[in-house]
Design a protein around this nucleic acid. Structure first.
Length: 153
DNA sequence: GCCAACGTTGGC
DNA sequence: GCCAACGTTGGC
């Protein structure tokens, strides 16, 4: 079991949008950063736990939990010239970008704010603080449990 | 809306 | 393969 944080702008796609997709979940697509892509393509596995983080919004922070229900598959938006995620350099014979499927598990009662994360000795070591441009990143079990504990406080 | 940080591109 | 220029992210 591995633990991840996926970032999203709630004005584009929020945890409530994910919740509305129900058990079949939603494709996590549009990731256009190579390191994040490598995680999605090579490391993220079915059953992995995913914390959802809202960025570029009023209440920045970790807002809930999801889980992976389908491992890496090709992100077809890269081939759609009408999509904002179109990438002319992605060759259908040799796809560049990948998605995974996740489904909503729970929405936290209260957002765990970036400020709280920065103030926590354990959580301040996460990529949310250290590598703020990365949109998909791994956290360890201890950090994951710390997030859940924050929620239950 | 500003701007610092930083990932990506492309010329050499 | 270096690195300057460029574009984007994301907190404030």
């Amino acid at each position: 079991m591995q633990y991840w944080i996926f970032k999203t702008e709630p004005s584009e796609f929020s945890i409530e949008d994910l919740k509305s997709k129900g058990k079949s979940g939603e494709e996590w697509n549009g990731i256009r950063n190579f390191q994040a892509r490598n995680f999605l393509r090579d490391k993220v596995k079915s059953g992995d736990q995913v914390l959802i983080y809202h960025s570029s919004c009023k209440e920045i922070g970790v807002v809930g939990l999801a889980e992976v229900i389908k491992e890496a598959f090709i992100d077809k938006l890269a081939f759609d010239s009408n999509s904002k995620y179109y990438d002319e350099k992605s060759d259908p014979e040799k796809p560049r970008w990948y998605s995974v499927q996740i489904r909503w598990v729970k929405t936290f009662d209260k957002t765990i704010s970036l400020q709280q994360i920065k103030n926590d000795n354990n959580l301040k070591e996460t990529f949310l603080v250290k590598r703020s441009r990365l949109s998909v990143g791994e956290i360890n079990q201890k950090q994951f449990e710390r997030f859940l504990k924050f929620n239950s406080l």
